[in-house]
Design a protein around this nucleic acid. Sequence first.
DNA 1: AGAAAATTTAAGATTTTTTTAAGAATGCAA
DNA 2: TTGCATTCTTAAAAAAATCTTAAATTTTCT
Lengths: 222, 222
Amino acid sequence: MKVLIVEDDKILSDTVKQCIENDYSVEQAFDGYEGYMFAKENIYDVIILDLMMPEMNGYELLTKLRSQNILTPVLILTAKDSTEDKVKGLTIGADDYLVKPFEREELLARLEALIRRNNGFFVSDTIDFKDLKLNLKNRKAFIGDKEILLQGKQFDLLEYLIRSKNTIITKEQIFDKIWGFDSDTSTNVIEVYASGLRKELKKYGYDKYLKTLRGVGYILSD
Amino acid sequence: MKVLIVEDDKILSDTVKQCIENDYSVEQAFDGYEGYMFAKENIYDVIILDLMMPEMNGYELLTKLRSQNILTPVLILTAKDSTEDKVKGLTIGADDYLVKPFEREELLARLEALIRRNNGFFVSDTIDFKDLKLNLKNRKAFIGDKEILLQGKQFDLLEYLIRSKNTIITKEQIFDKIWGFDSDTSTNVIEVYASGLRKELKKYGYDKYLKTLRGVGYILSD
DNA sequence: AGAAAATTTAAGATTTTTTTAAGAATGCAA
DNA sequence: TTGCATTCTTAAAAAAATCTTAAATTTTCT
């Protein structure tokens, strides 16, 4: 993760650098113009920006970046603590605004939050078992690049099996998970659905991974 | 733009609401559990979250949301002003942290920054799905260069579908997003609108992309 | 106020999913 | 190996969800 510090006060810039250099690879620019030249490379994960600087001030720099579609997250770090300044900074395109003096931990936490948001939190929307993939966003299932069609609870059952892959799940667990413990359906439905699921999986030879353990339950495993 | 305020102090919640209701459509939850129930609908553009609350505190609520891949931007608004609290909040998934008492303008500016970052900087006034384009400014819809005529909520429904293209949206989400969770209309209206929408789309063969997933919801996908 | 438009209700038709049920197949233990 | 219990498989029946209209109601606009 690369961070650019744009700050004309050398001592302060170094202080900030020390705060974060354990976690990030840091570059420093010491006036607005230099900061702009670095920033427009568009290679940073965050920019820490001072407002009062020679050559080009922070507002101008930020405005210029945004107008050129450089959307690197920007955290303004400044002594200017008026609401007016904060509003101005945030309005022209900053993502956060922190007033000096600041605490090291808060700066780090805010940087982390900006980066996290920008890189996408990324929790996957798919789960898989070998080449079998379930997309939970659209409830589609694929083996390799062939789609297998699963209706309603067939998908739910396969999802549960994949989430529990390589561990046994009992019929009772399946029933409580998918039908709800208060359902008054006979547990034979599970066999019906397992059967239907196997029939689909068989088309691609995947039925062999869904095993029945008599008197115990089912397991999806290789 | 929809904002959810989760705050147990009714008076304070209303104050915040007044601050922002000119700019956003606001819903309020008055304890952590209620907040969670609302937030997990995943229909808000920002959540303003208090920390100290009965039932489930803000940290727990936020953690639970993120663990369920609900990535709505969260701004923590609280009286707790220690660095420790700020760090904790930001670390577990908040995007910003503002301490009470706060200035109305700063809150608005920070919300704006969060939304801007989340929606992609340039708020386009058109969205599309294949050759289907919606102009959000004048609320007109086109397939190729032919206009399709959509009345009020038909347009809203199609907009929501396009914004969520290739992702399933449940009837509940649609209902809460377009009608508001406190509406006392029957969810059958959704079917009525979906039906009307399909009838329009059918003129250009686009009805086939709007699929019903029984017991689950709707999806616009190819 | 009256007309037009949008929204909601309601009810029957249609479609799909879920459940039942019964015979066939399978595995296990005596 | 035989007999019993469990599981598999099918197809039909039942239930549930959704679709589609059209009429009733509400809202908006003139």
